[in-house]
Design a protein around this nucleic acid. Structure first.
Lengths: 253, 253
DNA sequence: GATAAAATTTGAATCTCATTCATAATCTGC
DNA sequence: GCAGATTATGAATGAGATTCAAATTTTATC
């Protein structure tokens, strides 16, 4: 039925409008200051209409975070599809995440806020499932890399599934984002340039898993060369000068 | 001046009373349901008095999270003071963190919620600094382990400071907590028993840093033996049967 | 121990929003 | 063109954080 289709499409369009505008408002004034009534007004709809789409404010935030995953996915897929050995691609994934965190810091705050138990459980079941579903292709892209590495003998399973193999580096990346966003924390503990460190520890972890080819941990030049190669070949839009900047926290000496 | 001292002491006592009660309420009904007016009433003080201590609700939450750090520190110090080689102690620290997360899950939620940018910036400057200051001894306990390991030649610096050496494992632990608390996420990505995995990846990372003695990654029995030794010698209050349970997520098959 | 100034405490009143729902507007099938 | 169904509306409600003028208590001085 064409009419039903159109209606569904229009509903979807309106939802996107709400999300677009919500994102704009959040970028302008932060998550804390997003007001449902204000958002509705900016979109020229009644508050009630907004609530036809989202069961609560938290529900809307989860929807927003979910939608933004696709931008992140785009970077991940480029890293995963890169014509290089699995290990280098795995590192490219970490670099992709760092680049994304620099490019859209507000997204990271949102994602962190939303994955808080407090907010998470306040969203609707359906919304939560959609969010988890959206994260699936990201995980799969990474797992494919591990799978190829295992098949080609670059890394032994050590009793781990491919997913489990990836989970360590995933946790480490995620954790570093958390530490970075708790402003002042890393400074307090004398840990400057967290993202440069993350990459180094990623090398250490991959080495520890026996993932070939091993990167000599104290060979700074080789690590730097790989990093620059990744930026040049996978993320050419990132200015070459940003190679340093990417690794620096704003405010570092 | 004795009178001033007494006044200061009483003020401090009242603050502790507020925090004690807040913690009780949060454990009963969750962070989301903590009400300032209710808290004041339970303590038999006026709301205004509560606000003489805490500039906002967020401020109170940060204070609460800060205070709870000391319980965590106690476990960390036991791990750090254990009579074992630095590497085993480092692992004991990870185990301490896992035990603590199981023992006081609500604390973890609070800590996670509070370190969110949104909440963090809503607390007073002084409160934030106190929180960072409280985390310092935890960091130092861990750093001391790395320092001893470097001094004794168990691990080479690879161009890292002792703090930087610890930051990878810190990020990984922190990240795994985040992933665990985003309920459904790890299940979606087929990663059961996250804390068992964390320990395995911790071994991998330490191996990758060249930290002696190397733990063979595929020797499950040796890893299990070390884990049990840590539980027996450092955390004897954790029932031996919990050795498995500790590693399991509730709801795992 | 009386008095006034200073410091502390109080809680009703205010204010900000998220959320609801009775009503109005619009659409659909006949 | 009309009854019934579907959508949209936004004023009203409710929950709860925060404030601040007034009340109370403490301190200092004689």
């Amino acid at each position: 039925m064409g009419i039903q289709d159109r209606k569904k499409r229009q509903l979807e369009e309106r939802e996107q409008l709400f999300l677009d505008k919500a994102w704009t408002l959040i970028q302008q004034e932060g998550v804390l200051n997003l007001q449902m009534s204000r958002l509705a007004a900016e979109c020229e709809y009644a508050v009630g209409t907004l609530y036809l789409h989202f069961s609560s404010k938290e529900d809307l935030l989860v929807a927003l975070a979910t939608r933004n995953v696709s931008d992140r996915l785009e970077l991940f897929l480029r890293a995963a599809a890169w014509a290089a050995c699995p290990r280098d691609r795995m590192l490219a994934v970490v670099v992709a995440d760092v680049i994304f965190s620099q490019r859209a810091p507000e997204y990271f705050r949102l994602a962190q806020y939303v994955s808080t138990h407090t907010i998470w459980v306040a969203a609707s079941e359906a919304r939560r499932e959609a969010a988890l579903e959206a994260s699936r292709p990201v995980g799969e892209a990474v797992r494919d890399i591990a799978e190829e590495a295992m098949r080609s003998g670059d890394v032994a399973s050590s009793g781990l599934t491919t997913q489990e193999m990836c989970s360590g580096i995933w946790a480490m990346t995620e954790g570093m984002h958390s530490l970075v966003s708790a402003s002042g924390l890393l400074e307090t503990h004398s840990v400057p340039r967290p993202y440069r460190l993350l990459i180094k520890h990623a090398h250490a972890l991959l080495n520890g898993l026996g993932w070939q080819p091993i990167m000599p941990l104290n060979d700074f030049d080789q690590q730097q060369a790989l990093l620059e190669r990744i930026l040049r070949e996978v993320f050419p839009e990132v200015p070459i000068a940003a190679c340093q900047a990417t690794e620096n926290q704003p405010g570092d000496q």
